[in-house]
């Protein structure tokens, strides 16, 4: 049996997950998102990633960005390296794409701030 802490919301439920053949039985979750989290965490853990990207725009040294969907946990540092290798040289509005399909993961890196909104 595995014990996990749910990170979906600030409640932070303590979850117990037990493998029963092909299925995973989850208890301790306050809502169904907790059960989904536990199953994912034990099979293919994913995380969101929020960071900044350098810009050449005066007064805005860095722009907050995030991935458009969760990425595999082990891809966090490779995606960080890709973002840190990039430079934004024209205004990107909030939600606008900074890096498309980053590392072929099927998710984009998008602006998460209105700093460069027109």
């Amino acid at each position: 049996m595995d014990e996990l802490v749910c990170i979906v919301c600030p409640r932070g439920c303590t979850l117990s997950a037990e493998r029963e053949g092909d299925t995973i039985r989850v208890t301790g979750n306050g809502c169904k998102r907790g059960a989904e989290f536990a199953r994912m965490e034990l099979t293919a853990p994913k995380r969101t990633l929020c960071t900044t990207v350098r810009t050449t725009i005066p007064g805005v040294p860095v722009l907050p960005v995030k991935v458009s969907a969760e990425i595999p946990k082990e891809k966090i540092f490779p995606v960080m390296a890709a973002i840190n290798a990039a430079t934004v040289d024209r205004p990107v509005a909030m939600g606008g794409v900074v890096l498309e399909n980053v590392l072929g993961l099927g998710v984009d890196v998008v602006a998460a701030s209105a700093l460069l909104d027109g």
């Binding site: 919301c9 969101t48 929020c50 900044t52 907050p64 995030k66 909030m94 998460a112 701030s113 209105a114």
Partner: peptide
């Protein structure tokens, strides 16, 4: 606060700080 997790109660969405403020 560029990390996400803001707005789960109000918007049922995980927003970054700048997105929530905006």
């Amino acid at each position: 606060c560029i990390h996400d997790g803001f707005g789960l109660v109000r918007f049922q969405e995980k927003l970054t700080g700048p997105e929530y403020a905006q």
